[in-house]
Simulated assay, not measured.
Amino acid sequence: MPELPEVETVCRGLNKATSGLTFIGVEVLLSRSLAYPKVDATFIEGIKSRKIITWHRRGKYLLAQLSHGWLGVHLRMTGQLLWLTQDTSLNKHTRIRLFFPDNRELRFVDTRTFGKVWFIPNDESPENIITGLQKLGYEPFSPDFSDSYLQSKLSKSRRHIKTFLLDQSLVAGIGNIYADEVLFKSNIHPLTLACDLTFSQISALRLAIIEILENAIEAGGTSFSDFLQITGVNGNYGGIAWVYGRKGLSCRICGTTINKMKLGGRSSHFCPQCQRMNENFSL
């Protein structure tokens, strides 16, 4: 699933390509891709002739502020937003087409059809319609995402730190890839209990979250599977990843072989030398 860096990369690309443009038409090819309103004609009527003011990212959601109302998108596992000419051959997994002047279109492609699109009328707030927004924790780049905030949450949790980082209600936007990267950068083993972290480890963790996410955004995200930038270009972070996707390869810091294990049904990559367990570790 695209994580914060991938969604932020798409958001920036959308702002560059579509801000100030007006929808001149909409085609819905798969009705179940619509989360709200669920009726094709109502969605089309709501979007048509609206102007895009700017795009925002909240967690893993994309929100376009329109001249009247909002357009929301969640890419989920395989969703893509591609900026194309209207005569580009149609992918069989195309679900929604949003048309603009000068033969341009924004095409929502989604192989597994888990992604969703919303039109929020002007008299509603996105949070009231997209209920997932209500559950999101602080953004990693927010001033509210402080050492003390993290400590207050971690000290109460006996979950493994890897599982903690994946909880969107605690910190928005981190998924499996960047949780592994962040834990490596802060020298924390993924099985460490959240409540066992020292304050210095918590501080290192917060700084690692910010650094890793910033680096991944600069690299255009990670393209291990379906993620593409809006121009169809792959993200480049995979080539510089510290541990994710590097099972059996040498650690870039100490040369130890990178390990991989299952934790909560998800893969976890780590260096057993750089990420040693705390002495007071307990299961």
Rank of each mutant, 00 (worst) to 15 (best):
T18L: 14
T22F: 06
F23I: 09
R32D: 15
S33L: 10
S33R: 06
A35L: 09
P37N: 14
A41K: 15
T42M: 11
I44S: 14
E45S: 15
G46L: 03
T54D: 10
T54G: 04
G59W: 03
L63G: 02
A64Y: 01
H68P: 02
W70E: 05
H74A: 09
G79S: 07
L90G: 02
K92P: 15
R97W: 03
R97Y: 08
L98Y: 10
L106D: 01
L106W: 04
D110C: 08
G132I: 03
L136I: 05
F141H: 09
S142D: 15
S146W: 02
L150T: 03
K156C: 11
S157G: 07
L170N: 00
L170F: 08
L170M: 12
Y178C: 02
Y178K: 00
E181N: 11
N187M: 12
L197Q: 00
F199P: 06
A204R: 08
L205I: 02
L207T: 09
L207Y: 04
L213I: 13
E214T: 15
N215D: 15
A216W: 00
G220T: 03
G220K: 00
S223A: 11
F224R: 09
T231H: 15
Y237G: 04
Y237W: 13
G238A: 13
G239D: 14
A241L: 09
Y244H: 12
K247L: 07
G248K: 12
L249H: 11
L249A: 12
L249P: 00
C251D: 03
G255T: 06
G255I: 07
I258P: 00
I258C: 08
N259E: 15
M261K: 14
Q275Y: 05
